[in-house]
Write a protein that binds this DNA or RNA. Structure first.
Length: 528
RNA sequence: GGCCCCGUCAUCUAGUGGACUAGGAUCCAUGGUUCUCAGCCAUGGCACACGGGUUCGAAUCCCGUCGGGGCCA
């Protein structure tokens, strides 16, 4: 056991997620938040959200809102915070100035920190010099022992200053819950700045104060904070705070194995949301990036993650962000979604793309008493024709297993919402068919379809499957190759080389439109 | 430049000295399933960074090399 540092005693689990609102919620931070959340819930502990907004230059409210909104969207909620109208908001460092000031003064009074009046130019010159003689750049400690009178004089002159921490030149170690013992020789490190003034504490200092004040038991954060840890431990020692447990989780990397960033493409949760990824897929995916259940299970809901999560099963090595796997999981969760819910989600994308529009009208069937109900009415944008939500549901249904992202619903089903289809006439040809044969197929379809009375996918299938088999023989092709009739049929309806099955599409399109599209295809063939 | 972390298929990973001719998932390929696509099913492809030790025996322990990454400025 380390006798020098006072480690926190086992007890209540309290963890925090402490983002700086200097950007949108990043996939990497979201995973850190998730691991903290899972650890808290698994251990009946508390999860706290602390917004580290001390950098006034780069902090933006927009980012803070994005972080909060997306955490909620993912299903990560915090348990505690200042009261805001009955609910609890997040803690904000910007609102905790007095607390930092108190501890800053304490360190100063006890001689554990000091005023430094060195100018940025001086510091820069010193750095350059050290570098030039092959030494690591490290603050010289010039202001460490400035006489009191000088300090007072400078302060009276309002000379700009920063506050530096007197780093004791000793070895510092901690036992990382994921990596084991990590040791640093702090004699190699210079006295670092802990505040740029009483009203602007810096990261390491504010973090240590808050972790103590919030009684954080476990600091779970990304690996890039490992080198901050010894500084924080020294600060804790100087302030008489216990040292919490630390767990540094591995980074998420881009395909080139460097830290995931903008140049690798989308990095923020909101972008993934917009692209049509489901929160359950993202959560499942992020959890598996660096954690595994110890067996070969792959699918995890938030509640099963809470049950299974353990820091012991967190990986040491960084994980490459693999979008193919995310797509796979997202496809899986889309297939699992109840149709009703999925339709709601897809409608949003269809409206966004301008394929349909929504208007609100009074219900034709008002409730027995009280105000009339307002119901949404969906219309096809191009024609103004009303489209029933039940119809949209059917469209979504036949594409449910084909979607990897919700946004794909647009390109996949646009033909349902278009008056005219535009496609290359040769697309109508199956294998070696010529114009004449395509025309024959379309004529045949038109004839057969006309006669069908019960217009549903089952009846259509029965009739057309039979017809298709006959047709290939009639035009002297390979017997049983139904493609000679079915392919032109499907292309005439969709204008696409890949789509859902023609019978289900025809059912949704209904008789009139189906036959109209066949006629259009005939015109297309003849027009050349 | 200094310090620190990491190293099993292309990717996420199982593996904690013998059950490993290294398992699962994604991915890729092939085949099956009502024309296509998707889904589903089946089959196949692909890895212990390298070199030394320790040991009867090493992916697993130790050392070194190499490689990747992070932090500081």
């Amino acid at each position: 056991m380390n006798s020098e540092f006072k480690f926190i005693q086992p007890g209540e689990v309290r963890v925090r997620f402490a983002p700086s609102p200097t950007g949108f919620l990043h996939i990497g931070s979201a995973r850190t938040a998730l691991f903290n959340f899972l650890f808290a819930k698994k251990n009946n502990g508390f999860f706290i959200l602390r917004i580290e907004d001390t950098d006034k230059e780069r902090t933006r409210l927009e980012y803070e809102q994005d972080i909060i909104e997306n955490l909620k969207w993912l299903g990560i909620e915090w348990d505690e915070g200042p009261d805001i109208g009955g609910k609890h908001g997040p803690y904000r460092q910007s609102q905790r100035g007095e607390i930092y000031e108190k501890y800053l003064k304490k360190l100063l009074e006890e001689g554990k920190a000091y005023y430094c009046f060195c100018s940025p130019e001086e510091l820069e010159a010193e750095r350059q010099y050290l570098l030039s003689i092959g030494q690591p750049p490290k603050y010289s400690g010039k202001c460490r022992n400035l006489p009191k009178e000088i300090v007072e004089k400078y302060k009276k002159e309002r000379k700009p200053f920063v506050i530096r921490f007197k780093v004791p030149p000793k070895k510092v170690w901690f036992n990382d819950l994921i990596r084991g013992k990590i040791e640093f020789d702090m004699s190699l490190s210079g006295d670092f700045v802990i505040a740029k003034g009483f009203d602007s504490p810096l990261y390491n200092f504010a973090c240590v104060v808050d972790d103590f004040e919030m009684r954080i038991s476990h600091v779970i954060r990304a690996e890039d904070h490992i080198s901050n840890t010894p500084k924080q431990i020294l600060l804790q020692e100087a302030l008489g705070f216990p040292t919490p447990y630390y767990a540094h989780i591995p980074l998420i990397l881009g395909p080139d194995r460097s830290k995931l960033s903008k140049r690798h493409g989308a990095t923020s949760i909101s972008e993934y949301k917009k692209m049509g990824y489901l929160p359950e897929a993202l959560v499942n995916f992020m959890a598996l990036l660096g954690w595994n259940p110890g067996d070969s299970r792959e699918f995890f809901s938030m509640s099963s993650l809470i049950k299974e999560f353990s820091l012991e099963n967190v990986q040491k090595s960084p994980a490459v962000f693999n979008i193919k796997k995310l797509d796979f999981l997202n496809g899986f969760y889309i297939r699992q979604k109840p149709l009703e819910k999925l339709t709601e989600l897809c409608v949003f994308y269809l409206i966004e793309a301008g394929l349909i529009k929504v208007e609100f009208a009074e219900s034709q069937y008002p409730p027995a008493y009280g105000a009339k109900e307002i119901v949404p009415v969906y219309k096809i944008s191009e024609t103004g024709e009303e489209i029933n939500i039940e119809t949209i549901k059917k469209i979504v249904e036949i594409y449910q297993q084909r979607l990897k992202r919700l946004s794909e619903i647009v390109e996949l089903t646009d033909f349902f919402f278009k008056k005219e289809l535009t496609y290359e006439k040769n697309l109508l040809k199956w294998k070696d068919m010529n114009d004449e044969e395509v025309l024959k197929a379309l004529d045949r379809l038109e004839n057969v379809l006309h006669k069908i009375k019960e217009w549903d996918r089952k009846k259509l299938e029965e009739t057309l499957m039979e017809e298709a088999r006959k047709f290939s023989e009639d035009i002297g092709k390979e017997a049983g190759d139904r493609g000679y009739l079915l392919w032109p049929f499907r292309v005439a309806l969709t204008g696409k080389k890949a789509s859902a099955g023609p019978f289900e599409i025809a059912e949704i399109l209904e008789k009139e439109k189906t036959i109209l599209r066949i006629k259009r295809a005939k015109e297309l063939i003849k027009s050349s």
